[in-house]
Design a protein around this nucleic acid. Structure first.
Length: 113
DNA sequence: AGACTGACGGTCT
DNA sequence: GAGACCGCCAGTC
């Protein structure tokens, strides 16, 4: 276990509702620099919708659904297909609108600490 | 030790 | 605007 992962979770948990953050942004705030990959890797370790997975320390309070890539799209992961639909639903519930391309206007919803 | 993989980012074409 | 390439790091085989 790397403390970097907890740092990432902490940063993600700081994202307010109705706002989204990019992986690169999270990485920078977490002190990882440009390692956006590591951020996605850490989030993937959460198990997304696998509450059965064991991650007692990270808790499920991490709003991973507020994290999108630099294009403003929901990144497709290897497994758990359909999870993105739930993510989009959660974001829309928070007031985030998607365009025809199914992308988010980062210029409007991008979280700015 | 070496090689492959992965929720990505930025730049070039 | 979209696609191809490279780079960066950690974890796993």
């Amino acid at each position: 276990m790397s403390d970097s992962r907890e740092r990432i979770y902490t940063v993600v948990a700081m994202i307010p509702a109705g706002a989204v953050a990019t992986y690169g942004q999270i990485a920078e705030l977490a002190g990882l620099g440009r390692q956006a990959r590591q951020v996605g890797y850490a989030l993937a370790a959460l198990g997304s919708d696998n509450p059965e997975s064991d991650n007692p320390e990270s808790e499920n309070d991490v709003p991973w659904h507020r994290v999108v890539n630099a294009k403003g799209e929901i990144s497709l992961r290897s497994t758990a297909s359909g999870c993105e639909a739930r993510q989009r639903s959660l974001l829309e519930r928070e007031g985030v609108r998607f365009d025809e391309h199914g992308r988010i206007a980062l210029s409007l919803y991008r979280w700015q600490p």
